[in-house]
Amino acid sequence: MSSLAAPALRPAFSPSGYLFGATGAILFASKGIIIKIAYGIGLDPETLLALRMVFALPFYLVIGAIAVFRMRANGEAMPSRGVLLRSALVGALGYWLASYSDFLGLQYISASFARLILFTYPLFVVLLGALLFRQPIRARALLAFAVAYCGLAVIFLQNFAATGTDTLRGAGFVAMAALSFALYQLLAGSLLRSIGSALFTCIAMTSASIVSLAQFALMRPLEGLVVSGDVLTLALMIAIGATVLPTFFMNAALKRIPPAANAMIGTVSPVATMGLAFLFLGEKVTMIELAGSVLVMLGIGGFSIADARRR
């Protein structure tokens, strides 16, 4: 009996798990870089988001189809219309509104600053959880909030002195993205437990894709989706390289390493964004911005790791 149970135990150290986690974090970090490059050749947020959804959706539909097949094979009941509708609405919140707000913000602020703002979404989860669901707020969360936002304030003030209202507008949009994604995280939990991550992701992505394409049809001519080879390459990069692949890498990491280790690896993302932004966009980081970034990563990284260890 003990020999049969042994393989189910999680290894104390899994090099592949850490490699998968770091790869996923770096690929997620590349999203802002690709978006910035796309803006540089004249693409607008609505077109880029629509193209991203068009190319990413087929992968998630296949995953959803496999999930439905397995449920039927196991004799499990299909989700009710109410659950399907809630999953669609929550998916639109997390995969359309949060993404679109992020895309809008990247028109005005650097990829590195935007990534740091998004990195603070766990604190919005804590605050919204307290406001909407009466979840307790621990002192550690308040300390993390103070440290992280001191760091963001330092970066914001320097950028505001240089670009004025563009910094305010961009930071506001990306903060809205972080807020939307945090609310998505809170609302998605019960749905994930009810129908499973694969089917929920399929429904959520399908809903977000429909909203994104409807938005595009209202704001742009449909022929705008017929793009050049360069734009097509960027759209494929953001859809597959910065959306689909990192999802699989992060899930693979979660199966191999503890949540605390995965949270620690997640702090790689802002650092990777800075490095990629320097290499591909020529974005330079001042000592003030570097100091602010360290505060953000210390606050959020420390809180995320400690929170993961409690689970």
Rank of each mutant, 00 (worst) to 15 (best):
A253Q: 09
F280P: 03
V227T: 13
G241T: 11
G229Q: 13
A263Y: 04
P246F: 10
L245N: 05
I265K: 05
K255R: 14
T247Y: 05
V268G: 00
M237K: 03
V268Y: 01
L236V: 12
L225G: 13
L225E: 04
V285Q: 10
V285M: 14
I238N: 02
I238F: 06
T273V: 15
L225M: 13
A239D: 05
A242L: 09
T267Y: 04
N262C: 13
L281R: 08
G229H: 12
P246C: 10
P259V: 09
A253K: 08
L232A: 15
M250Q: 11
G241C: 10
R256H: 10
L279K: 03
A252D: 09
M237Q: 13
G282L: 07
L245E: 01
S228E: 11
S269K: 10
F280N: 01
T247D: 01
G241W: 05
T243S: 15
L236C: 12
N251P: 01
G282M: 06
S228R: 12
G229C: 11
L232E: 07
L225P: 06
L232P: 07
R256G: 03
M274E: 02
L236G: 09
L276G: 04
E283L: 07
I257T: 06
A261N: 15
L281T: 05
F278P: 00
D230F: 07
I238R: 04
A261Q: 14
N251R: 15
T267H: 01
V285D: 00
L279A: 15
A252K: 15
E283I: 09
V244L: 09
L234T: 08
M274W: 10
T273M: 04
P259L: 11
N262K: 10
L279P: 02
V226A: 12
P246E: 06
A263K: 03
A239E: 03
G282N: 12
